[in-house]
Design a binder for these strands. Sequence first.
DNA 1: GTGCTCCTGACCAAAACGGTCAGGAAAGTC
DNA 2: GACTTTCCTGACCGTTTTGGTCAGGAGCAC
Lengths: 151, 151
Amino acid sequence: MRVSAKADYAVRAAAELAAADEGPIKGERLAESQDIPLQFLEHILLELKHAGIVRARRGAKGGYWLARPSEEVTIADIVRAVEGPIANVQSAPPESIEYRGNAEHLQEVWIAVRASLRTVLEHVTLADLVSGQLPSEVEALAASPDAWAAR
Amino acid sequence: MRVSAKADYAVRAAAELAAADEGPIKGERLAESQDIPLQFLEHILLELKHAGIVRARRGAKGGYWLARPSEEVTIADIVRAVEGPIANVQSAPPESIEYRGNAEHLQEVWIAVRASLRTVLEHVTLADLVSGQLPSEVEALAASPDAWAAR
DNA sequence: GTGCTCCTGACCAAAACGGTCAGGAAAGTC
DNA sequence: GACTTTCCTGACCGTTTTGGTCAGGAGCAC
């Protein structure tokens, strides 16, 4: 139930790409502006490229840019590209698990967990993230002072 | 963003304890009814005991039972007992992270992620799980056919 | 051709995951 | 008091994941 460094880095780099208004951005610049180890970031950007989220060109004037407009790329897209399926249980999707005895309804709980994650991750786009204008449901979740308390 | 075997096992074992109406239940019986490796389960139950969720007695007639009524134990309690804080980013709680540049609002997104997980995990009790009567918000999340689709 | 930048695979240390093993310590039974 | 039962605990173990680094190659621009 945690967010890996890789996913965090990936979203941050993508946010920088979303905010860039002109031409390809060099990996080095992304690494610097978000304080991410360059060589690790390059691997991450490669995964994003393979997932079709990012494009790249080499050589002088080369760099990275988003394959789609920032309004059409969600945080979920990016997290899935680098971490795989969201909310798997023991590396299997919850809908494929069969529970016995008194744990029978646990499947529905994990499904609900995944659904709740999706309502956040699939609705926040890179454009939202950069502008700070999060969808109202997400804003509502983050607005509660309770949400900021550790537990 | 995944649920470990340990957390899954812990909740399943706790569900069996919640459903037991009389006396302590042996670890062996829990292991059998939920098909969990016994020795691994014993370690998990020990963690639950240290967290104050479960109690135990040794010897003949010994076994495990819930320290509190099943209506007062949430899935979140159990997951935290075995996995630690929910939705940490790079092993740090989201409220403690400072984001720079265009990723500034990412903190709110991770906070919202945690809040959404909490709305499910903190509201489903062991009693709910065993009876199958999940809280209406959770039921609503799990009811959508979309929630059951892999992605 | 000469830089520049991305691309790729190999490698690496440390931690986490999912267990198993072996023995000790309480509680109950005879 | 001996014996059995059951939990308690720490040590260990193989594999995978995490979070990187290193070294070189391939494409692009000039």
